[in-house]
Design a protein around this nucleic acid. Structure first.
Length: 205
DNA sequence: CTACGGATTTTCT
DNA sequence: GAAAATCCGTAGT
């Protein structure tokens, strides 16, 4: 039985700070009484007050985006492109819509279960390409960890989904433009995507 | 290896 | 009715 060792204050900072500080932390999912875990290696920050790429830009409030307005420390999970789910870690104070999209993980535990959830076959039958594709994207990692919109709004101190800090450090952080936000005008150019240099599981260099 | 287009359905207008 | 914080297979280099 493990649980989160991250203090609540961690989540009350702004999303740009959290996007960097979340790198290296471990995302843990308990599913059907088994643990699936991966190290966060790529993130993107979204800050509604100044960011046309945010789902809550302009103060937009719809049922889907409601979790964005909550106090930091919960998950925001949405369904996109008719097929995929993506997960944010919500940050900052209540009514200030900020979040960090988890874009890629390095698989650590529960690889067999991940493999079945992603490709419906055993980890030992995966091709090298498939191993790298297990969690190297926001939609991929949600499928590998059985995360969907049923979990939106869930506490990151819950049994089912939480973060853990194992002290991993000493990596370089690269920042780049975010991906898939061609509609966001000047925000397209914000360097708000962060990843661990040279990690094999990032979605894109 | 890169480039491109199609898939598929929720969500909000 | 249109768009979407993506992914994958196929074709070409």
């Amino acid at each position: 039985m493990i649980k989160s060792n991250i203090p609540k204050e961690f989540y009350l900072k702004d999303a740009l700070t959290l996007a960097k500080e979340l790198l290296g932390k471990i995302l843990v999912r308990k599913y059907e009484n088994e643990y699936i875990a991966g190290r966060i290696v790529e993130t993107e920050a979204y800050i509604a007050s100044i960011d046309k790429a945010s789902h809550a830009y302009g103060g937009k409030r719809t049922p889907r985006v409601a979790p964005l307005y909550e106090e930091g420390g919960i998950a925001y999970v949405y369904f996109i492109y008719g097929m995929y789910s993506c997960m944010n870690v919500i940050t900052g104070p209540k009514d200030d819509a900020q979040g960090v999209l988890i874009r890629a993980l390095e698989p650590l535990e529960g690889k067999e279960l991940m493999s079945h959830l992603r490709f419906n076959k055993s980890y030992s039958d995966l091709k090298p390409r498939e191993i790298l594709n297990l969690t190297s994207g926001p939609g991929k990692l949600c499928k590998a960890l059985a995360i969907d919109k049923a979990l939106t709004g869930i506490s990151l101190y819950s049994d089912e989904l939480f973060l853990y800090d194992d002290g991993f450090e000493g990596f370089n952080i690269i920042s780049k433009k975010r991906i898939g936000i061609d509609y966001a005008e000047e925000a397209i150019d914000f360097p708000w995507r962060f990843y661990i240099e040279d990690n094999k599981y990032i979605s894109k260099k």
